[in-house]
Amino acid sequence: MNWLLSLIDRVTERRVRQTAHVHGRRSFVTRLGTALVGGAVLPMLPFDRSGQFGSAMAAGSSGGAKAKAPDKSQDPTQCEYWRYCAFDGFLCTCCGGSLTQCPPGTEASKVSWVGTCLNPQDGRHYLVSYNDCCGKGSCGECLCNNNERERPGYRLGVHNDINWCMANTSSMFHCTTSIIVGAA
């Protein structure tokens, strides 16, 4: 057994000495540093995850067929709904109201802001009036803040960061509706 350990020691020593004659300490430190930095940078490189999404969808469906993800641009309880392109506030659809009606106990603001949103189903742009519902404390459900084509605050009719309940008797903001005014 000692002869085997002695043989391993001699072979290892010979290899280490040969490597030391060929490569200096600086080249070893350089290569080690490159490997460490490269290993740290590697996870930051971009790569395609679309294949993972497809397999996850297939795994979640029954019978092996791919499940279709729900279209959030057609769900009025989601911030991605197409009418909410210039929306800022709580969705009335989550607060007891609807797309066009304020919840009970609130009234529509007398002033509003307007956005131009693209309906993906028909490919047309529509003027959408955003009316705050006033008279109750903040709903606190389904907060959305979409600023597509938002204009600076000095153009109030297209600016969504204002309490539009200021013209009502009660300036308390509750939620916001989104009413189609017409085609753009």
Rank of each mutant, 00 (worst) to 15 (best):
M1A: 12
N2Q: 13
W3N: 13
L5H: 12
L5P: 11
S6I: 14
S6R: 09
D9H: 15
D9W: 15
R10S: 15
R10L: 13
V11A: 14
R17T: 07
R17P: 02
A20Q: 01
V22I: 11
H23S: 10
G24I: 00
R25Q: 04
R26D: 08
S27Q: 09
F28W: 10
F28C: 10
T30W: 11
R31V: 14
G33E: 09
G33D: 06
G33H: 08
L36T: 08
V37Q: 00
P43S: 08
M44R: 05
P46M: 05
S50F: 09
A56H: 12
M57Y: 08
G60C: 12
S61G: 15
G63M: 01
G64K: 14
D71L: 02
T77L: 08
T77H: 11
W82D: 04
R83F: 03
R83T: 07
C85P: 07
C92N: 02
G96N: 05
G96Y: 05
T100R: 01
Q101R: 07
P103K: 04
P103G: 00
T106Y: 00
K110G: 10
V111M: 10
L118V: 00
Q121R: 15
Q121F: 08
Q121Y: 08
G123E: 06
G123M: 05
H125A: 02
Y126D: 04
Y126S: 03
L127G: 06
L127C: 12
V128H: 05
N131R: 11
N131Q: 11
C133T: 01
C133Q: 04
C134N: 07
G135H: 00
G137A: 10
S138K: 12
S138I: 14
E141D: 11
P152M: 02
G153P: 15
Y154L: 07
R155P: 10
L156N: 14
G157Y: 05
V158H: 10
I162R: 13
C165D: 07
C165L: 06
S170R: 02
S171P: 09
S171H: 13
M172N: 13
H174N: 09
H174A: 02
T176G: 14
T176V: 15
T177D: 05
I179S: 00
V181N: 10
G182E: 02
